[in-house]
Nucleic acid binder design. Structure first.
Length: 423
RNA sequence: GUGAGUGUAGCUCAACCUGGUUAGAGCACCUGACUGUGGAUCAGGAUGUUGGGGGUUCGAAUCCCCUCACUCACCCCA
């Protein structure tokens, strides 16, 4: 019998990683809600054309990274490689009133060789502000992401910001850059030579030092913006100046997705290895038109969950504690077990996480089981306690034990109570 | 898709270069010391088709070939 293994590039989230994932998602929900976003859930797969329309048929994602398949009826479908296209499609299809702010937490799929911080199935946390054109929204979106990382205890990141122009100023700039690149074509690396014809701005992404040297005096997008784009970007920058975050203008930042225009940004961290980007985003004012919708300004942001977990510093409160808020009930005999089960029900009705064993095992073993479960407290239900209508309560971290009257037991744990009623 | 590295117990690794009895250690696990107290200590116990297949050899964890998996980097991006 050979055991099955998970497919390449996928991962199992088992405790404690699964707990970290949930808590990060909860913070994201909370913060997005605070910023006025509401959750949107779109399908895991879409008609393939949805992603081709938005990412651009020349992009690497479309060309070689999509999980595309035909279903039993011959429909051409693709597992979502990113969050934005499905959201745009859903906004149009459901005819949502604008402006609207939506957030999502979703698995995404891209076929590429896995490495540190890069998986074939990965999770994106994203927000999309749709129907808002003010540069203040751009700044707010950038600040939203930075605030999220900061609340997680992640401080070692910088924000790269740039503007890549609009449909009015970009064509002329593109020609200028292309002319520049063609002069140097022979000296560029093979990758850049093909890259420049598809999307010349992507050559700025090349890590090859000889290419970087050649590009030092290349015309930069920010210097060729039209007056409107310049004004827009200046306001974004102005708004960032008053924030405590570590941001910088990076005129080489262009981002890989074709649908961006004007403001683009990226959060980078040094602790992630080669995949240094924690997340990024930008404005996509033309994407709705690609989908046959009305002219609709929009800006969005996507954060990589796995990379966020990697970047969590040692002392972050979002790193899981060794013990969880769980009460483990220990009992000594059949009569005590019946009482223990009653107590278990009471605690659970009060939304207090509680557990016990139904196996007739010795007290020592029960304490050991409490340990394995990672429980924070043990309640001991023994002959003495039963007689006196009391419980013995042991704190498994400090080892301290005390006697609690039966009627005080629920209030004792009220701080452990869970609630799902708030968002 | 390209390149490099690594696969030995549940985990981290040793033995491999220089082939030679029953492949070891630490952690974890189980039992007991302790019939009402975990995490400490002591004593004992269990655990492997050495990733898989083939070859060389009297003999392979060790050398060679193929294959699979993982890791990192290129690429791409979250």
């Amino acid at each position: 019998m050979t055991r099955s293994s998970r497919p390449k590039g996928t991962q199992d989230f088992v405790p404690p990683e699964s707990i970290k994932k949930t808590r990060i998602e909860m913070l994201f929900r909370e913060l997005a809600t605070v910023y006025g976003y509401q959750e949107v859930v779109t399908p895991t797969f879409e008609h393939t054309e949805v992603f081709i329309k938005s990412s651009g048929s020349a992009s690497d994602i479309v060309q070689k990274e999509m999980y595309t398949f035909t279903d039993r009826a011959g429909r051409n479908l693709t597992l979502k490689p990113e969050g934005t296209p499905g959201v745009v499609r859903a906004v149009l299809e459901n005819n949502l009133r604008l402006p609207c702010r939506l957030f999502y937490i979703s698995p995404c799929f891209r076929y590429s060789r896995p490495q540190k911080g890069r998986y074939r199935e990965f999770y994106q946390l994203g927000v999309e502000a749709i129907g808002e054109s003010s540069p203040l929204v751009d700044a707010e979106t950038i600040i939203f992401g930075a605030t999220f990382f900061t609340r997680l205890g992640i401080t070692e990141f910088t924000i790269k910001v740039n503007s890549i122009g609009c449909r009015h100023c970009r064509p002329a700039y593109r020609e200028k850059l292309l002319t520049f690149l063609r002069e140097k074509q022979k000296k560029l690396c093979p990758d850049c030579q093909t890259r420049m014809e598809i999307n010349p701005m992507r050559t700025f992404d090349c890590k090859n030092t000889s290419c970087q040297l050649l590009l030092n005096d290349a015309p930069l997008p920010k210097r060729h913006l039209c007056p409107e784009c310049t004004a827009h970007f200046e306001e974004v920058i102005d708004s960032l100046k008053s924030t405590p975050f570590n941001w910088k203008l990076d005129e080489h930042l262009v981002r890989g997705l074709d649908y961006y225009n004007r403001t683009t940004f990226e959060y980078v961290s040094g602790v992630l290895g080669a995949q240094s980007s924690l997340g990024g985003g930008g404005r996509y004012d033309y994407l709705f038109e690609e989908f046959g919708g009305p002219v609709t300004p929009a800006i969005g942001l996507a954060i990589g969950l796995e990379r966020t977990i990697l970047a969590l510093p040692e002392g972050s409160p979002f790193n899981t504690a060794s013990r969880r808020n769980l009460v483990f009930i220990v009992w000594t005999g059949p009569a005590e077990m019946a009482a223990a089960r009653e107590l278990l029900n009471i605690l659970r009705q009060e939304n207090i996480p509680a557990l016990m064993t139904y196996e007739p095992v010795r007290v020592k073993r029960q304490f050991h089981l409490a340990d394995i479960a990672g429980a924070r407290f043990c309640i001991i239900v023994g002959e003495e306690e039963l007689k006196g209508n009391l419980y013995a309560l042991k704190d498994l971290i400090t080892g301290e034990q005390s006697i609690v009257p039966a009627e005080k037991i629920v209030p004792t744990f009220s701080s452990l109570r869970l609630s799902s009623e708030r968002i």
